[in-house]
Nucleic acid binder design. Sequence first.
DNA 1: TAATATTTTGCAATCGTATGCATTATTTAT
DNA 2: ATAAATAATGCATACGATTGCAAAATATTA
Lengths: 337, 337
Amino acid sequence: MSNKKVTSLEVAKLAGVSQSAVSRVFTPGASSSKKTNELVRKAATKLGYRPNILARSLITGKSRIIGLVVAYLDNYFYPEALALLSSALQKRGYHVLIFMSGNKEGHIVDAVDEILDYQVDGIIAASVSMSSDLAKRCASAGVPVVLFNRTQDDERLSAVTSANVLGGQKVARFLLAGGHKRIGHIAGWEGASTQRDREKGFSDELTRNGKSLYAREIGNFNLDEARQAARKMFTRKDFPDAVFVANDAMAIAVIDVIRFELGLKVPEQVSVVGYDDVPISSSPAYDLTTVRQPANRMVAETVSILIENIENKTTTARRIEIDGPLMVRGSAKISDT
Amino acid sequence: MSNKKVTSLEVAKLAGVSQSAVSRVFTPGASSSKKTNELVRKAATKLGYRPNILARSLITGKSRIIGLVVAYLDNYFYPEALALLSSALQKRGYHVLIFMSGNKEGHIVDAVDEILDYQVDGIIAASVSMSSDLAKRCASAGVPVVLFNRTQDDERLSAVTSANVLGGQKVARFLLAGGHKRIGHIAGWEGASTQRDREKGFSDELTRNGKSLYAREIGNFNLDEARQAARKMFTRKDFPDAVFVANDAMAIAVIDVIRFELGLKVPEQVSVVGYDDVPISSSPAYDLTTVRQPANRMVAETVSILIENIENKTTTARRIEIDGPLMVRGSAKISDT
DNA sequence: TAATATTTTGCAATCGTATGCATTATTTAT
DNA sequence: ATAAATAATGCATACGATTGCAAAATATTA
């Protein structure tokens, strides 16, 4: 009804003190006597006063807003990460401003520009790649950036990922140990460092064991394309007896195609391994063997790096890789009898 | 490197005009000559100037920030809605500030308080209930609120939902037509209007046809509890031959229990129907019959109501219910032969 | 071309808060 | 009880933009 914004001045008047006093009461670390404190707080609650963060930001130069750029939300790993990120930051007094972005360079540039307009204290770029140019722009605006689930060549950018190369290796070793002869790979988007690293670990390990990729298709982290890839890969006569799919979301689509469209048995005829360990993967209907990405630990690291950069004005970039276990389940044969 | 914030004043100096001129160039609708426009824009891009939204907000009273309160992100319906909401708002020049909240009254109050601190232009409350008190607080702060996927008794609150009562009815009719004799329901959280409405439509329609609920358990929109509920419901001797589960996420967990733990056939022995139509529901592994909630249309309505309230300062609350089709798939028998 | 109407511009005030500085009140030490 | 040290307070300014107002510049009309 009463469209009034209560200001510190009104509180001051009611409490019989100066506006600065009110400000000091609401500024942690500022000095005010017990008496003023009480007076002010009483007046404040009576009027329903709460400090205007935007006005405060203007003066302090800190908005307590973190910009989050996200490209995909359809891979369930990201919503989960988003929830964790947001909660973790909230606990430390920050809040997340979301920017949905395509994965095209242009989109991301636009997103970052808009983000900077909001005077954010930091940026988390999840699942998008960031050019050195763009990184520089943020740096020169004094806004720290942390890449989440992506790495970049530029050494000055902090990045948190799972140990993707290692993860790919684990998958390769596991499939080899299972006695698989014809091993395929359905790749995600090749512009993504996660894809490159997972595949590198995977195929290097195959090579090291005198094997090589038997088949390869591209799914681009997209379900339709993944299904197409599966159809292509498994309608040939000597189809692979195992396939490593670059993430769980695609792996599940691939299993569906293999089982229900092509009528093949998983794991009897085809072993399928994914990456991420999203919740649905552990359901018995899929029982997907996969590499777990520990979202909670990745988030914790991301937040801690970002806050460190913001609050201590450090500028040292860190790259963290967090190892995750291979979750051995029923979608892949363990030994070839 | 150079941690400088470029201000309109510096641009003004470089362009040889007044600071107000710079402001006018960047304020849509303000008047400035072609010449100044060019001068200013040139200087601006040279210095990398972009208007400080926070400073602007302070004076205009509009932040172009929309606060979004969310409780669950584990039901995939919400990430999808979030992505759509964010994109839709982005297109209209707004951005979304996220507040994760528990579903307890206290949490929500805290969340809303924090939201208001950021001087948001509007609030979308997704999947959380909002007391009249709280609504009033927002109203008196002049901040419009739209409930997404929840309704409240308070007539002054806008709310967008799917047609939940109707949806429940459809499910009942469908199961009755399929000749089911012992029909059960696994409920979500009973504090949610969606739950109440879905169940009301469902059980009223059963009653109207001379039937009544054969069994009922509570899953609280939580997967573990849903599994527990399924175990309880289907280990008795004369277990139901059909169950309506209050949302897809739970329905899928329930199917897993029915099939893999209890060894029953879906749909031969038990028909299962869900609500939402999340992506995984259409996968052949579940092939879940469910009522679709048209997220895109719900989002479109939500955004349009909110923007209308913000930009035209209208204050008329609207409640919109969007009908969604029953997606008939394989998880429920169609006729009882 | 002169007179009038319209657009553009700069000045200065303003939004709501934080903070350096000088002043006053309070505490501590002697 | 007095001097010295510390804490609390108010004043005034600053943050970076927008905007009403009056003056100056440009466009329109007769």
